[in-house]
């Protein structure tokens, strides 16, 4: 029995899953997939950065995104600030938040003498649950949306292919963020300190770099990047306490696909995930579209156990 055909439908002759696919659908799907993929990359890059820095996977990453979207929403609701203008403020707020999370929780998790891996997974998982609870407590579980913004609902049409402006600008911000990050890590003192700390935390202590400070800044930077993503997402997505869940798994897969420790990997991973998602929806029932993403991840790591561009 093929997928989508029900047993009782054979009797009634029902055929599920009518799915119109035209050339235009394919091009449009790919274009949308590419834009969405760049956003996935932007959401995931903070995760990649933090992992690359200190081998920690933040299981509360989706909740960081949720906080960023709430900050954007409240700046809009109370100060009528457009999400685009709010983006730097959101990034700054998340920077502080990320650094505080490091200093209050992660610092102790990585210091654990036993089971460091599990401790950091579960302390950040606990943080995720806590943040969801707090969001529900303070913001109520209601669904919020930024109702009007400069870009919201606007779209550019090129030869019958629609490129929504929020995603387009989001994609540009993602590209700029990746370029900036690349420059930052390779060309600035702090970036070099970050790299050095990552490679040998003991040795940098000898040359007078405070490891905790570097890590805190690293977490801040990682969170700030999620902040940017959250500000863009808030333009076209809804906000509620559990909103991070849908993005978290995709973000982990994106980072792992690209290879842990590689910022460029997250960029490439995001694009691949976006495109694979689009293509899967053309072939399989839409409810199975993440299966495509997951299958590609497995395929890649079975061939290259460290992802596409991973070094660790």
């Amino acid at each position: 029995m093929g997928p989508g055909v029900r047993q009782d439908d054979i009797e009634t002759g029902l055929e599920h899953g009518a799915k119109p696919v035209t050339a235009e659908t394919i091009i449009q799907s790919l274009a949308s997939g590419l834009l969405m993929g760049l956003l996935y990359g932007l959401i995931a890059v903070g995760l990649a950065l933090i992992f690359g820095l200190m081998d920690v996977v933040n299981f509360a990453h989706g909740e960081f995104l949720m906080i960023a979207m709430y900050v954007t929403f409240f700046l809009f609701a109370y100060f009528a600030l457009d999400p685009l203008l709010a983006a730097p403020l959101v990034a700054a707020a998340l920077f502080i938040f990320g650094a505080v999370v490091y200093l209050l929780i992660v610092r102790f998790a990585v210091r654990a003498k036993a089971n460091t891996g599990m401790v950091q997974i579960f302390s950040t998982f606990g943080l995720a649950v806590l943040m969801r609870g707090l969001a529900q407590y303070f913001f109520t579980p209601d669904y919020r949306s930024v109702t009007h913004s400069w870009l919201g609902g606007k779209t550019i049409s090129v030869g019958g292919i629609y490129l929504p402006e929020p995603q387009l600008v989001g994609a540009l911000i993602a590209i700029a963020a990746f370029a900036g990050l690349y420059f930052f890590i390779n060309r600035t003192d702090f970036g070099r300190a970050l790299e050095a700390t990552r490679e040998d935390a003991g040795a940098v202590a000898l040359v007078g770099i405070d490891k905790n400070k570097v890590f805190a800044l690293g977490w801040g930077l990682g969170a700030a990047l999620v902040g940017l993503a959250g500000a863009v997402m808030a333009i076209f997505f809804y906000v509620f306490p559990d909103v991070g869940a849908s993005f978290a798994t995709i973000a982990y897969v994106t980072v792992a696909l690209g290879g842990f420790g590689s910022v460029f990997g997250a960029f490439a991973g995001g694009i691949i995930v976006g495109l694979v998602e689009a293509v899967t929806t053309l072939i399989l029932p839409a409810s199975l579209k993440t299966v495509g993403i997951y299958a590609v991840y497995l395929l890649v790591v079975f061939i290259r156990p460290r992802g596409l561009f991973g070094s660790i």
């Binding site: 102790f108 401790v119 606990g126 609870g133 306490p241």
Partner: peptide, 24 residues
């Protein structure tokens, strides 16, 4: 209560135990 207090308690506890007693 619908206010997520159970999540706050649950999440907080997981953080506390995993940090205070990493070896379990």
């Amino acid at each position: 209560s619908g206010r997520g207090v159970d999540l706050i308690v649950y999440g907080g506890l997981i953080i506390a135990i995993s940090l205070a007693r990493p070896q379990g």
